[in-house]
Amino acid sequence: MTEFRKSRWFALVWAVPAAVVVAAGVVILARFIRDLPAVQDWLVTYPGHSPLPAGTPEGFPWWLGWLHFLNSLFMLLIVRTGWQIHTTKRHEAYWTRNNSGLIRTKNPPTRLSLPLWFHLSLDTLWVLTGVVYVVLIFASGHWARIVPTSWDVFPNAISTGLQYATLEWPTENGWEGYNALQLLLYFVTVFIAAPIAILTGIRMSPAWSIRLKRITPYVPIAWARRLHFPVMVYFVAFTFVHVVLVAATGLLRNLNHMYANRDDVSWVGFWVFLASVAVMVGAWIAARPVVLRAIAGLGGTVSRR
C-alpha cells in the first residue's frame, strides 16, 4: 500500500471521484439554467443548428471514409511516437539519411532518433492526407459542413453545449449536417489546430536549423515547443469526445455514415469499422524497433546509440 501511495497512479484514487462529482455538478447546474424561462425562449430561437448554404450536398462521399481511416491511423501512430520522443531521454537506435540516390543535398545528413524519423515520416503522410481532404471538400461542396457561414453558429453552439450538459442531447442527423458545436469543433480542428501542429512541428524539426537559419531568431523554438504538445493533447481529447459521441448518439447509423456511405442502421459500417480497427492494432504492434529499423534502412543507415 505504501508503494502504491508513492506511485503516479495514486492520484487517480482522488481524481476519478472528483471528476464524477464535478460532472454531476455540471449536469445539475445545466439543468437549472435550462429550466429558466428566459433560457427556454432562447433555446427555441437557437435550437443548436445553423442552416447550411443552398446546394450543400448531403451524405458522406466514399473518399471521405478512406481519408478518415488514414487520418485515424496516422494520428494514432503520430501521438505514440510523439509521446516516445517527449518522454525518452536516450534512444536505442538512430537513422542517418543516405546522401545519394534520388535525394541529394549539399547539407550533411542529419542523425535522427528512430522514433523521430518515424514521427516525421508519419507527419508527411498525415499532411498529404490533409491536403487531399481540403482540396476534395472544397471541390465537392462539402466544405460548408465544417466552415461557419453565419454568425448564428455561435449562439447555436452554446445552445448545443447546454443541451449536451443536461444529458438531454439535441436531435442528431449527421447525414444532412452537423450541429453548430460540431461544426465549430471540426473547423477548429481542421483549419486551426492542424496548421499549428504542422508549423510548430516544422520549426522543431532538424531541417529548420539547416535550411532556415536566417529567420531562426524571429521564430524561437521554445515558442513552438510550448504549442506543439498542447495541440497533441487537444487532438487526443477531441478524438476521445468524438468516439464517445459517435457511440452515444446512434452507433450503427454513425458508423454507416462514415464507413459504408449509407444512412441506415444496418451492421455494414460496424464490420468495416472493426476491420479498420484491426488494421490500426496491427500497425501499432508492427511499429516495433526491429521492423522500423528494417524500413528505415531502405533510405538511410541505422546505427545503435
Rank of each mutant, 00 (worst) to 15 (best):
T2L: 15
W9L: 15
F10I: 01
A11S: 12
V13E: 03
L29G: 14
D35I: 00
A38V: 09
W42E: 04
H49Y: 13
P51H: 02
A54S: 10
T56F: 02
E58V: 11
G59P: 05
G59L: 05
H68S: 05
M75S: 03
T81L: 01
W83F: 11
H86W: 14
R90P: 00
Y94Q: 03
W95N: 00
L102W: 14
I103V: 13
L120H: 09
W126A: 09
T129C: 09
A139V: 09
H142I: 05
R145C: 10
I146M: 10
S150L: 01
F154V: 14
F154L: 15
Y164V: 05
P170C: 03
W175R: 04
E176M: 13
N179C: 09
L181P: 02
Q182L: 10
V188D: 02
I192S: 08
W208P: 07
W208S: 14
K213H: 11
I221D: 14
R226T: 10
R226W: 13
L227K: 02
L227D: 01
P230N: 07
V241C: 08
H242G: 09
L245S: 10
G250T: 04
R253F: 03
H257I: 09
A260Q: 12
D264T: 05
S266E: 05
V268Q: 14
F273E: 02
A275K: 13
V279G: 01
G282T: 04
A296F: 04
L298M: 09
R305I: 06
